[in-house]
Design a protein around this nucleic acid. Structure first.
Lengths: 204, 204, 204, 204
DNA sequence: AATGAATGAGCATTCATTCAT
DNA sequence: TATGAATGAATGCTCATTCAT
């Protein structure tokens, strides 16, 4: 802002003009900033400029590595999904098996904390991606990766049909929880998930 | 500021500027155009100008009745929700009771056709609303109305806990269906919903 | 703001639609609001709409009585000047004669308090008028009325030449005081005015 | 927001868009145009667009170098003041010393010619600056520079108190002269200034 | 390769002004 | 007479994108 960078800082008469140690690193910086922007302000807030500002980078740095806004969107979402998959893998590694009751408990917690705003940004970005994918077929494979991964992860504990039902229900519960005026009731969530997961006998 | 529009342009022999005199009708025209824009291009495509173009109205007509873009958004979504609620009521009136099996069948069809793009715009607008509500608390009551209505409608046939689970699952299934690369498998959807609705005939 | 007055408040089926007791009163309300707007936000802030808002009046009420913005400007300034003249007359009546020393004291106080922001809005409006008059000859007679009145008032105590000098100096001092970064030094002001008024021997 | 400018317009066979490559020069062009606009139409006429038109530049060129209107205002006034100070210095160099009588003569001429419209635009811009500074503290230092410089220049010939009085009186005289209906009487101006400058030859 | 400069297009919003009632 | 409705014309500002270095 204000009258267009005067950029007086020459590196000196001899210094080579700031060697870039790692071309890939810059690209990563940009994407990471883009991710943060989407989380904070949504896809509608994602512009080359907002990314540059977020990452404290020159605007042309963002357009150089991602010529169009669509490139930026695509890559940012891809990275976001990559991270989610890595997280899922980590989770599966750490908590390899679990009783159905444990699973229900864990999922219930996930829903409640997500709706309470704990991990809300992660979910928000996901929904942002899903919605964007509806209008931009190029994003569908990326969206599909999350959807499939979530389901696959549940299939480690549940039958495919149940995994499908649960993964859909989780998406819907959190979506409704984040969009509506009040967070869902823990008992109700627990009961619903218990039924879905096959335990049948929800507590209280 | 500045000497705005000298406006020497007489109506000329061509077309008298067509001053309308029915404010309510005009307002409705604008909102309807706004709804169509959201359905077609998403919230990001909603501008006073795009609405004006869609409704073949002067731009100032849209800003006169809806001074800010947020007004436009709010009212457009409200109208969209109103129509959904009316549709639900109509449905409940026409198909007052149903066996659980019938319900499952109906819901399965809803999911499949929605994902096949049949009623896709309706759902797209809904998701657009949900996502927008996450960032704009002013929209939450509106979002809540749809969520609540959907659940309430299901409660005519199911226990509250199940109605909750089903309404969330429906949202999630269609969301995944519209965002992913392939439409969901009818059998899977049917099985999942059957289990949720308590028919008990779901495969393992 | 917000979606264009819905104006449901009918006066009832029989009541005559709000009798205007005095057509001139409405006009006065508008001008008074206009004056307040100029004082608060300057001529650049004066629009039919800002006046309507300030006076809590319908916009069309302002355009009805003052069809163009220039009318509004003209009349608002005229009223402002009228009030200043009335004030001067009142002053001359109350403090009919005074020693030169008293006069100097009074003028010094006027400058200091004006620059301290006490009566600043009055002076601001005056300068607003002077500047506007430079570009709009129609305002010159109005501007001239204040200028002449100020000088005439001083001529009750000073020779015409001195009255001229003092009135100009007062304008300049306050102008500089209000535009600059620090208020003028009382001693300096006093000394300067004393010299101008002919006392010659300023204190300390 | 929204899919801004598809920009299909090739430069075509007509005129290559003339990309300039000298940022300082461009910036200067913009400010100079801005100065001319203020002189011609006042601050209220200063818009990015009017400046662009005046300087025959693309609108975005003005917003690129001066992101906000306030930047434009600030810088334009600063440049105007710079030029005035340079002029004053030049004057002081050329006419280093002068008898009081000469000084009075010179100042009288300055007032008369200014009010006759000779250098009127310079003064108009000054008053524009003063008035603007009243409402925008950011401009006060700039305004102060002119005020102080004018006074300092007079202090080369007069005592500080007198320099103060004279500089204020000059401002006021020209202001009244430009705003009122008739130009001031040379004799009166001369007499007033003579008294102020200490020549003592003023008539009673 | 990287980046500052430059620009056309578009947007939300505000406004003076004109109509219709 | 008064006033809500309506609208064309700006305005400040943001942005994607393209150049030139």
């Amino acid at each position: 802002m204000a009258e267009a960078g005067t950029n007086d800082a020459q590196p000196g008469p001899t210094t080579p003009p700031r060697r870039r140690r790692d071309p890939e690193a810059r690209k990563r910086e940009v994407i990471e900033a883009a991710e943060r922007v989407i989380a904070a302000r949504g896809l509608e807030g994602l512009t080359h400029r907002s990314v540059a500002a977020e990452g404290d980078l020159p605007v042309a740095s963002t357009t150089y590595h991602f010529a169009t806004r669509d490139d930026l969107i695509q890559l940012a979402f891809e990275r976001s999904v990559d991270q989610f998959l890595a997280y899922l893998e980590h989770l599966d590694a750490v908590q390899p098996t679990a009783s159905t009751a444990d699973l229900v408990e864990r999922l219930t917690n996930a829903v409640i904390t997500a709706c309470a705003g704990e991990n809300a940004t992660h979910w928000t970005v996901q929904y942002e991606l899903f919605l964007a994918a509806m209008r931009r077929p190029a994003l569908r494979p990326t969206a599909d990766r999350t959807i499939t991964a979530g389901r696959a992860s549940l299939e480690r504990h549940l039958s495919p049909a149940r995994a499908y039902a649960v993964s859909a229900a989780l998406s819907g519960m959190i979506l409704h929880g984040l969009a509506g005026t009040h967070t869902p009731d823990r008992t109700t969530v627990h009961a619903a998930l218990a039924e879905l997961c096959g335990g049948g006998t929800a507590p209280a």
